[in-house]
């Protein structure tokens, strides 16, 4: 009986997630009347705005990942090593982006950094991109912090640090050569989550008026029928591709096999 419910739950769960995907994919292939075709996909790929916005969001997600790694890895490391009592507080801070809507954050940015403020970041494209990167870093913080913190939990941070120190290493060497390589899979998992967030983010990019992928998807969705599901399938493919890459990296990094 228990086994029956287990199978039922599994099949129900699979159908719940897969059916909409199958439906959406099927619909995206029905652009040509009466037969399946990749016309919708061709249209998307032929649209220069797709490549422009996708490239823009990809560049910004790369910047976000760099800022996120530089911010989170040393912070999570330091909290584990020297300030374990501050962990609940830091965790609370990193969770704040989940309860503060992006729209509140972006309005705050616009008020603080508008053209008549002391720091008029919204006055230039570079300044706005910088602001958007910081905003994305904030949105990705809960995922990046948790990934890195979980990675740090799998290694003996204190002893490895002391071993490296006794061999003459300073903080930067310890972080770059010992800590970061040992949490690389966790960092990559946080990085791919960040990529997924940045590619799909609409509110911040739209309100800061930047040519990102999120607003493009919204624009396409509001005006076309078959291209938006094609775009959604492409977005899913990118995300799953990233997850596959993550698995590949885990398998290829020899020292990670010990943990498996």
């Amino acid at each position: 009986m228990t086994r029956f419910f287990a199978w039922f739950a599994l099949i129900f769960g699979c159908l719940y997630f897969l059916l909409p995907l199958v439906g959406m994919t099927e619909f995206s292939l029905k652009m040509r009347r009466g037969e399946y075709s990749f016309d919708a996909y061709r249209r998307v790929f032929e649209d220069q705005r797709f490549w422009d916005t996708f490239g823009y969001s990809l560049a910004l997600s790369a910047a976000t990942i760099v800022v996120g790694v530089l911010l989170v890895v040393p912070t999570a490391y330091w909290v584990r090593l020297k300030l374990p009592q501050a962990r609940p507080f830091v965790e609370f801070v990193t969770l704040l982006p989940l309860v503060i809507p992006a729209i509140v954050l972006v309005f705050g940015y616009i008020r603080l950094y508008n053209t008549s403020s002391v720091l008029p970041l919204t006055g230039s494209a570079f300044g706005t991109d910088f602001l958007l990167t910081m905003g994305y870093t904030t949105l990705a913080l809960p995922y990046m912090y948790r990934s890195v913190d979980t990675g740090l939990r799998t290694i003996d941070v204190a002893t490895l640090t002391e071993a490296a120190q006794s061999l003459g290493a300073g903080w930067i060497t310890i972080l770059a050569r010992i800590i970061l390589p040992n949490v690389m899979v966790a960092v990559l998992s946080g990085a791919f989550l960040t990529l997924a967030i940045v590619l799909g983010e609409f509110t911040m990019a739209a309100l800061l008026n930047r040519p990102a992928f999120g607003p493009f998807m919204q624009l396409l969705g509001a005006n076309r029928a078959y291209e938006p599901p094609a775009l959604a399938v492409i977005a899913f493919a990118i995300t799953w591709g990233c997850m596959g890459l993550m698995q590949l990296v885990t398998r290829l990094s020899k020292h990670e096999r010990a943990k498996a």
């Binding site: 002893t159 002391e162 120190q165 006794s166 290493a169 010992i178 390589p181 040992n182 990094s253």
Partner: peptide
Amino acid sequence: ANARNIGMMFQAYALFPNLTVADNVAF
């Protein structure tokens, strides 16, 4: 600690998991 030129062995080995034996010794 990193300026004392002292070698140390730990109970938990503390070898760097991402480095080979030779790279650990060379660190």
